Amino acid sequence: MLALEAIGDGAFAEAEALVDGVSESLVLYREGDRVRAWLNICPHAGRRLDWAPGQFLKSKDGLLVCAAHGAGFELQRGECISGPCRGQSLRAVAVDVRDGAVWRVGP
């Protein structure tokens, strides 16, 4: 899928993966050797979160910020804690880090 070293520690990256048989854009977030992933879709309006392909906004408080409407998502569970979709969450996608790369887990 993507080399772990291609994602800066504490940074985001975008990758494509099959999710339920459909090619989807994912947001990847790296913390050390751990990577979390979500669909690159804001639950508020169904738009991509990045302001340009693979370019994501991170607030001073460490939130992933939707470039379209400013919703702020915490990085543990992807829950929206500020903005128009407060209380909703990003859709998590299972990934695993092995052999220096991030791999999609599951169907």
Rank of each mutant, 00 (worst) to 15 (best):
E31P: 04
E31C: 04
E31G: 05
G32T: 00
D33E: 15
D33H: 06
R34N: 00
V35R: 00
R36Y: 05
R36L: 07
A37L: 04
W38G: 03
W38N: 01
W38F: 02
L39D: 12
L39Y: 12
N40T: 15
I41Q: 15
C42H: 08
C42G: 08
C42D: 09
C42F: 12
P43D: 14
P43Q: 12
P43W: 09
A45D: 05
R48V: 14
R48L: 14
R48T: 10
L49M: 11
D50R: 08
D50L: 09
D50Y: 09
A52T: 02
A52N: 09
G54P: 03
G54Q: 06
Q55T: 05
Q55E: 15
F56M: 03
F56L: 07
K58F: 05
S59A: 09
K60F: 06
D61P: 04
G62A: 03
G62V: 10
L63M: 14
L63V: 03
L63E: 12
L64G: 06
L64C: 06
V65S: 01
V65G: 01
V65K: 01
V65P: 03
C66F: 09
C66R: 09
A67S: 15
A67T: 05
A68R: 13
A68D: 12
A68F: 10
A68M: 13
H69W: 06
H69P: 07
H69T: 09
G70P: 02
A71E: 07
G72L: 08
G72N: 01
G72W: 03
F73N: 03
E74D: 08
E74C: 07
L75T: 02
Q76N: 12
R77L: 09
R77P: 00
G78A: 07
G78L: 00
G78I: 04
E79Q: 13
E79V: 11
E79K: 14
I81F: 11
S82Y: 13
S82M: 10
S82P: 02
G83C: 13
G83W: 11
G83A: 12
P84F: 10
P84L: 11
C85M: 11
C85K: 10
R86A: 13
R86Q: 13
G87V: 09
G87L: 07
S89N: 10
S89R: 14
R91P: 05
R91D: 06
A92T: 14
A92G: 11
V93Q: 00
V93A: 04
A94D: 15
A94L: 07
A94E: 15
A94W: 00
V95D: 00
V95P: 00
V95H: 02
D96A: 15
D96H: 12
D96R: 15
V97M: 02
V97R: 04
V97H: 10
R98I: 01
D99M: 12
D99T: 10
G100N: 02
A101C: 10
A101N: 03
V102Y: 06
R104S: 04
R104C: 02
R104M: 09
V105P: 07
V105L: 13
